[in-house]
Each structure stands twice: as C-alpha cells, then as structure tokens.
Nucleic acid binder design. Structure first.
Lengths: 355, 355
DNA sequence: TAGTTTATAGTAAATGTTTACAGTTGCACT
DNA sequence: AGTGCAACTGTAAACATTTACTATAAACTA
C-alpha cells in the first residue's frame, strides 16, 4: 500500500480501533495487549506506516544521525575511514551526515557551525592537519564529539580515536636499523629550517608543532635510533608534505645536501612513490642502493614497482571504532581514548644493507 | 552567550518584546518593521538562537538535506564524486546524508529504505553496478531522485547524470587506431563466453547486459573499429572486472589464447596496471610491444611507470552536477539528463605501432 | 467476596515551529 | 477630517509525535 502524503498515527489508530498512544507504544516497543498488537500491526502494514522522524525529534528523541566531518573525502585515508564509519553506523541503525572541509579552514568552521545546529546525536571530527590555531567550538559543549585520526594533543579534553603514529615511526626506523641501515633520512611535514640547530627536546616543545601527528612519528624515529645507539643527525631530516610531488622535491633536496644516506622514512605512500621516482631517475636503485619506507599502506603500494614496504594503519577500523566510541559518549558510558596499533608491512622497497 | 538546552522562539520574542510570529518571520526573511528587526536581531544574538530544525520539519518545510547512496565510499571514483557533491551541496546550503552499500545488494535495499523514510529533500543514487535485478523502489515515487554515474538504461524514467562511456570507448579505440594499431583487445566486465559466437547486435540486445555502462564502452569500441574498416574479432574480447588482480588474470587469459594483439582497451586504470604488470613479467614491454589504455584517470596513473594513457572522467564535476540536477528536481524545474564529456589523456602506456 | 495489586489503555498536554486570519497602524488622498 | 489602502503584527490553530496521568479491567490475596 502506498505511503501517501501523510498517513499519521491518527489514521493508523483509527483503522486499528485503538488510541494513538497505543500505536505509538507499539511502534516504540512498549508492551501492548497481544490482540491489540495484532490489529496495530495490520494497520501499520496496510498503510506502510512509519513514524514521522521530525515529529519525534521535536519531543527531544534521538535523531539516530551522527555527523562526520573530514578534511577531504577523496583521499584514500579519509574515504576508508568514512566507509568504516558508515558500516558501524549502519549496524547501530544510525545515519551519517557527512561534511568535507576541502582542506580549507573557513569551510571547516562553517561546516561545523552548520552541523552543530543540526539535529545530530553526535559528531566525529577530524580537524584539518594544518589547524595550528584550533577552532574554538561552541557546539562542543553541547554535542557529544569524538576526535578521529588525530593525536591526543589536538583537543585534550575530548575523547580521541587515533593511530599509534609514534609506533609507526618507531617500527619503520627499527626495521631499517635491523636491516643494517645507519644513515636513515626522515621526511617530516612539521620540520622547519630552524630545527636543524635545535636539540630534539626543544623541537618537541616548540609551540605549534604539537598539533602534527607527524611529530610523534618523529619521536618514534628518535626512540629507535637511540635504542640502537645511533646519534640523530638533523641534516638527515627534510621538510616534506604528503603528496607525490612533495616526495619528489624532498628527495631532490636530500640529494642536493650531498650527505650520505642509505634509507628514508616517509610519512605517506605517495611520498615514498615520489622519492622512488626521483631516486631512480638519478640512477639510484630502490631498494638496492637506498631503502624507502612508505606510510599508510595504500592500494597503490601493491601496484607500483618496487612494491612498497610500509606501515599499515587500519583506517576502516578507525572509522568503525570512532562510531563506537561516539555511541558510548552519546549513551553516557564513559569512553576511553583508543589508540590503534599499526603494523609493519614488508615488501620490496626495502632490503638488507649491502656492505 | 551559550546556546542553552532550549531557547525557543518564545524566549526570543519575550526578550525582544514582540510576538513569536514576528521572530519567526524575521528569521525566515519576511519583512518586519526595522525597529522591531533590530530588537529581534539583538535578542537572537544574545541567545545565539537558531530555529529548531525538527520543529520546522514537522510543518513540512524542506530539510535542506539530501541523501547520497553509493556502492562504496572508498573507491576513488565514488570518493571524488562525493567530494564534488559535498562542495555543491555546501554552496546550496544543503547537508548530505551519505550511505554506502559495501557493494552488497541487501545493504543497498536496506539503506535506501532507511533513507527514503528519513527527512530528505531528495536522493542521489548510484546503484551497485551488478544490479541486474533492479530494486523496485517504492520511495522513488515520493522522493526526488537523480541517478548518478550510471547509464540511462538503469532507471529510464528518472533523470540521470552520467559520463559518456560510449565516447570513452570510442576515443580510446580511435586513438589506438590512429597510432597504427589494428589488433585491439577489449576487456569488458559484461562479457560472457557465449557472446563469442554472437553477432554484436545480438549482444547489445541480450537482456541483462543493458545495465552495464561497460556495454556502451564496447559499442564505442565497435564504432571506432568500423570507422577504420576493421572487422571486430570476438577472440580479442576478454571478460574482466575492475580491479588490479582482475587485470592481471585477464591479461594472462589473453596471452593464453595465442592470438596476436598489439594493444588493449581496459575499463579501469587498476586493470591497466594489472595488465602492464603481467605483460612486463612475460617480457612484453609496454608501450613498445603492446599499448595499454587505462580508464578513469586515477592519481595512480601518474605515479606508475609507464604513466598511464587513459580516459579522464570528471567525477568531481559529476558529483556537483548531480546535486545541481537534484536541486532542480526538488524545485520542480524540469531537469534534463546530463551527459558529461570524457577526455583522452595521452601519457606513456601507449605508442606508435612499430612496423 | 471484597480489597489490593498489576497490567495495560486512553486522554490530553506538551514539544517548537509556521502561517491563515484578523486586527492595527500610519499614510496618502479627497 | 474621513476614507481607503498598504504594510505590518499578533493570536491561535495546526503539524505528528511522546508521555504523565488517570481510568479500567483482570488477577491475586486474604
């Protein structure tokens, strides 16, 4: 039977010969006398009736809708995160209102504002990485919020679901060390020229830097070096963003420094691809001459030659877990931060150091 | 000023010393006397007041929310489509409720059902490609719907926004022909063993096949061949889905047929990568021995070696345009189907035929 | 059997808007 | 000044639910 313009509780109740309260209760899973339940069920069936979500909302019910705000939707990390979130939300019977910031701050603020005043039960929010000046978000006082895929430092008072970037940097570096590499270059997005002269503790304390999860990757790198008793050489650190072209130019920069290096830890598979591209163009073979670690385990890494050794971060799981955590916050269970493990994937862009 | 639990029209009206109707009108852009407008503005400011969306909805207002249902969110095509949709939606002041089907039919049906009874102004829907048995969608009678990124045949009565797959197949093939290639293999997802013995017209008419946009790509291939007076050889057609591994095995299949071929038209950049991988592993050089066309112009194609010659389809624009078309349907302007042009990208996986 | 408890049903109020309708004000014109 | 009209404002009735409260009937208990 067609779901006409407005079949309402009243219609159903009339048809079933009961009061609207009974229909409402039946539909909300409150016990009603079996005979009546049958009649209501029939009426509901007959009209293909659903409760009007708007009308329920006005009475302060949950909307069973959560917001997800990401820096961009067409980057594999976030796309996969979103897919994971969608799956978990579906299992919870929730819908997802999605917002992209296009990497722009104005948009971010605007989107959050729009969302905050929407009828959401909660929000999963991944701030744009460059957010040094964090947005002061009024809405966060009212709305359950989980921060996804960003290091704890971002909004310390809010629950986080994030990957172990420190572990990622540590694992990469330790693996290269175990292969015999000792001159390990590190490509870091947060790096600033001034840092070359600073001690590492000072760098870690520089205001503004704390926002970057890349910094934790760096501290993992340092830890591994230390464990092997290798002293850290700031000349081996290059500023590098996350794209293919960024990898290319950072590799050129490294080459231009005329210092020895036998391997590189990057922050993204795209960067690793760019690095390999540039290196090979200079006649430097990967992995024979230089080993290169990717980060993120994108599809791409299995396709290019050499296949990328990399760090796997399970963004799908991260998406799911974010929704779960948010679910807890919404239902006022206490929620702990969740740090997701990261995994070393060994493929062909790394090899034992030739002596 | 904090946006407390429930600041309502009444509060604002009281504070401003006017009636709730006036506040409502002011907020909805209906002219009110300037003095009052000022007072209302002050009150609104003071309470940081927003209209309660749920309460408006109950009166049948638009929700300014549209649904977008895609087969998967973490495939670059759909991710980019979604990003485009998000941008346009933002410009229209609309929010996006997103649903992924995980490529599964049950989920698809369930998701649509959930969405249809949500408070949406409209829906953008990209059915799962394998949908041979199309879902009979009750909701489509009530809700403005635009079909995105699928050939017109899918839901003939609904407006479509889609890419010119026929043109894509034609462009690819014609380009290879212009390079001197004459034995052009075609990898097609819809292909069935029985088709080898059938004439091409019969194939085009086979029920079930019509759903695949891949079929249009094939008809473009045929058209180009015909234009060059080349007869079509069904032995050069291989069934192949859209992934990297699919490309690998289809290439092996082609090789095993022991027939001559000088080039391949694929349906996806992933497939092209798989093909190249397999070919090179057999000592067949791309593009020197065989030219390979990708499809889709993914990021990946600029990264691998050789860089992929491919067909660019602007999924971002497709996403934007879908939202625009839906906007028209919602506002009862008449909407035409939109066919987006496709563009030949020449890179390094194709070359002049050596004689 | 009468009294008490339990289970369930119905009534009506409440939710926060929009908007039809009726009322008010001020202004231009005669 | 009186009339007509335009421009606005306010009142109150929807809108489709949920739920506190009250009513009723049945099931126990003594």
């Amino acid at each position: 039977m067609a779901n006409r313009k407005s079949v309402t509780l009243v219609d159903v109740a009339k048809y079933a010969g009961v009061s609207i309260a009974t229909v409402s209760r039946y539909l909300n899973g409150v016990r009603v006398r079996p005979e009546l339940a049958v009649k209501v069920a029939e009426a509901v069936e007959k009209f293909d009736y659903r409760l009007n979500p708007a009308a329920r909302l006005i009475k302060g019910q949950k909307s069973e809708t959560i917001g997800v705000i990401l820096p961009e939707l067409d980057h594999p990390y976030f796309a996969t995160l979103l897919e994971g979130a969608a799956e978990q939300a579906r299992e919870f019977g929730q819908s997802i209102l999605v917002g992209s910031c296009h990497g722009k701050h104005e948009v971010e603020e605007q989107t959050i504002d729009q969302f905050a005043h929407n009828i959401l039960d909660g929000l999963i929010y991944t701030p744009v990485a460059k957010s040094v000046n964090l947005i002061e978000i009024e809405a966060f006082r009212e709305l359950p919020v989980v921060i996804a895929a960003r290091d704890k430092s971002v909004y310390p008072e809010l629950p986080h679901v994030y990957q172990d970037t420190h572990g990622g940097g540590y694992l990469s570096t330790k693996y290269l060390l175990s292969l015999g590499h000792r001159k390990i270059a590190f490509f870091a997005s947060f790096w600033e020229p001034g840092f070359t002269e600073m001690g590492m503790l000072d760098i870690l304390k520089t205001p503004g830097t704390g926002v970057y999860s890349s910094l934790n990757r760096f501290s993992g790198y340092l830890e591994a070096l230390q464990e092997f008793g290798i002293s850290y050489d700031p000349k081996l650190v290059i500023k590098c963003s996350y794209g293919f072209e960024d990898g290319k130019s950072a590799a050129k920069e490294l080459l231009s420094r005329m210092i020895e290096f036998d391997s590189i830890v990057t922050a993204s598979d795209y960067v690793a691809c760019g690095v390999i591209d540039t290196l090979e163009a200079q006649g430097i073979s990967v992995p024979n001459d230089v080993s290169v670690m990717g980060y993120g385990n994108l599809e791409l890494g299995k396709i290019i030659k050499p296949q990328l050794s990399t760090i796997h971060q399970n963004m799908f799981e991260l998406g799911k877990q974010s929704v779960r955590s948010l679910h807890d916050v919404i239902h006022e269970k206490d929620t702990e931060d969740i740090l997701l493990d990261v995994e070393l994937i060994v493929r062909d862009s790394t090899s034992k150091k030739e002596i």
